[in-house]
Structure formats: structure tokens, C-alpha cells
Amino acid sequence: MTQLLPDRVADAAGSASAPANPARRALGQSDLRVFPLAIGGNVFGWTTDARATNDVLDAYAERGGNFIDTADSYASGRSEIMIGNWMRERRNRAQMVVGTKVGKGPEHAGVTASAIIGAVTASLDRLGTDYIDLLYLHIDDESVPFEETLFAVDDLILSGKVRYFGASDHSANRLIEARVIAAQLGVTPMVAVQNHYNLMHRTEFEGDLARVAAQQRLGVMPRFALASGFLSGKYRTKADLARNGRGAEAAGYLNRRGLRVLAVLDRVAMEQGVSVAAIALAWLLSKPNVVAPVASASSAGQVIELTAAAGLQLSRHQIGELDRASV
């Protein structure tokens, strides 16, 4: 990650350092109120051990963060275990909004009724909690009738094991289908959607998906918000890619367009007095219906950089520059 620059006082151009506790945002049509950045749990138990995970979550909570994103498939369930251990040790479960995904876990794969119920039961056990605030369907399997999936989720909501649910990587047409069927069945509709969306990956979301999300008033949580680390500014040459074990994931962005985006991010980051990564996240937060981008961190220092985005106000000119550079 790039080094966080010194904080600067807000001015008329909209430049500002992040306050310790920026305003929380409503998550779709739910009563959940979340910090404008979800801390991603995909690295917990994989590249980040228990001690580093606690450091990351402590730093996030100290900055006002309350939204943790994980999945039953992350590190084969170890991510959920680490998050659960942290909440138990800190006795802060009631203050946290926990979002997890089911559908890709090896023990309960798919979105049949039995798979969903089994996956949620296992996630609750690993998290050490009685309820999941936001449950995502991690896959879309059109071979399973939506009626079966929606009835299973509704049963979990009625039992109090799940509060709200959403979709991850569903198409616009499938979101429409789900809403129609939910209305016909009289079951709980989705409140959120999580899809691949960032400065380097815009087309997939900004068309029909964005329109449907707006129509259904879904809270949008962009995943891969930093384009596999590329939008943190740490990959600028082929040598940078080679030095990092995950550089291959960002290699596709190291081209003329990517360098153009980084150049604008550099300039805006200097104007705002924060890191490049914070500007990339703030750009997402300026978009309609985006509630909280999902970004992961492996150290407390990275958390400070990322959470700075939550309190930034980009100027129209800065947003326009980023829009043009990333087309």
C-alpha cells in the first residue's frame, strides 16, 4: 500500500482528511447502518494469521468500522472462525454487522434448501453467534428453482438466524426474477447486491445492474474494490508484479489505461492528502446506491489508509477526471 500522507484540513475544493467516525450509511431498505467501508475477511486465515487479523479488526473498529465481510468458503471457514473469536474476545458482537456468503463452501455447496440451511448452521457455529446480519447467495445456480432458494432463506429470516439477505454476482435479469418471485410468494426480498466494480472494471456493473439496483433500492457493496491491489498504486512496473505473490491478479491492469488511471489517482491523492487506495474507494462511494466497498487489509496501517476513504468528499472535477481516465 502507498504511505498515508499527512492529514489536511477540509477546504472549499472538497479536500478533507477522514474523521474518526464518519456517518454510517443505510444498507438498502434494511434497518442496518454501516460504516462506508466493509473490511474484507478473504485474507483472514489465508495470508493473515490470527494475531494480524485481530490487529486489523481492532484498527478497523477503532476508526468506527462495524461492517465485516466474509464467506463460508474463505480459507475453508477459518475466516469466519477468526472473526468469531475476535468478536467473542472483544464482546462486541452486537456492535458489528456481519455479512457472510454461502454457496461455495465445500461441505454445503450450492443454493438448494438443504445446502443453504446446512451452510448457515455451520457459519453460525464458526462465527460463534446466533444470527447473521446479511447473508449473501455466493453463486447463482439457475438449475435450482429460485422458489426453493427464497423459501429457504425466508425460513432462516423468520427463525431469526438471518436478518437480511442479498446476492453476489447475479445478473440484472436474475435480480428482477428474484424480486418478482419473492413478491409472488410473499417472502422477504433481497436488500443488497455485491458485484465486481472498481475504476478498472466498470462496464459490467454500470449498465443494467446499476439500473436494477436503483429500481429495487438495493445497497451496493462493490467487491474487488481495489482491483486486486492495482488501485493501491503498488503495481506500476512488471518488476512490481514479480515482487508480489499476488501480482499476477493485477497484471491485466498494467497497461496504458491502467497507468492513466494511476496518474489521476496520484494527483487527486496529493490534493486530498491521503493514499491512492483511499481515493479509489472514495470514487466508488461517490456513485449512486454504493453503500460500502469491500476491501481487505493485512495490517493496521493499511486499515488506516483504507478507512480514510469513508470521510472524503471528492470534488465534481476530481470525480470527472477519474471517470474520464477510466473509460
Rank of each mutant, 00 (worst) to 15 (best):
D130Q: 15
T121G: 11
V56L: 10
F146C: 08
E107A: 11
A59I: 02
V102P: 00
N66C: 04
T48Y: 08
E80V: 09
T121Q: 14
D140W: 15
L134T: 01
Y60R: 07
T53V: 11
I116F: 09
G128M: 09
G128N: 07
R51I: 12
A113K: 09
W46S: 09
Y74D: 07
L124P: 05
D130H: 13
P145W: 07
L124E: 09
V144H: 09
L127N: 07
G64C: 05
G110T: 05
D58N: 14
R126L: 10
Y131H: 15
V111M: 09
V56C: 14
I117L: 12
G84F: 10
E148C: 03
F146S: 09
R91Y: 03
N85K: 13
V144M: 10
G128P: 07
G105Y: 00
T47V: 12
H138M: 14
R126V: 10
D49G: 12
T121R: 15
W86H: 12
A52G: 02
E107N: 11
S73T: 13
L135K: 03
W86L: 12
I139T: 05
M87W: 01
T48Q: 11
E62C: 00
Y131T: 15
K101A: 08
M82V: 00
G65K: 01
T53Y: 02
V98P: 08
R63V: 01
N92L: 06
V98C: 03
V102H: 10
E80A: 02
F67W: 04
Y74P: 02
T100M: 12
Y136P: 09
A119L: 12
A59N: 02
S76L: 14
L137Q: 13
A61K: 02
A75C: 08
A115K: 02
S76M: 12
A50E: 15
A75T: 00
H138R: 12
D130V: 04
S123R: 05
D141V: 12
G110P: 06
I68D: 01
D130T: 14
R91W: 00
R93I: 06
S114T: 15
L127E: 08
G99P: 03
R88A: 15
G103A: 08
T47Q: 13
P106E: 13
P106R: 10
G77H: 05
G77L: 03
I68S: 00
D125N: 13
R78Y: 04
T53I: 06
R90S: 11
D58T: 12
A94T: 02
D140V: 03
R91V: 10
A119K: 08
D125F: 06
R78A: 14
S73W: 01
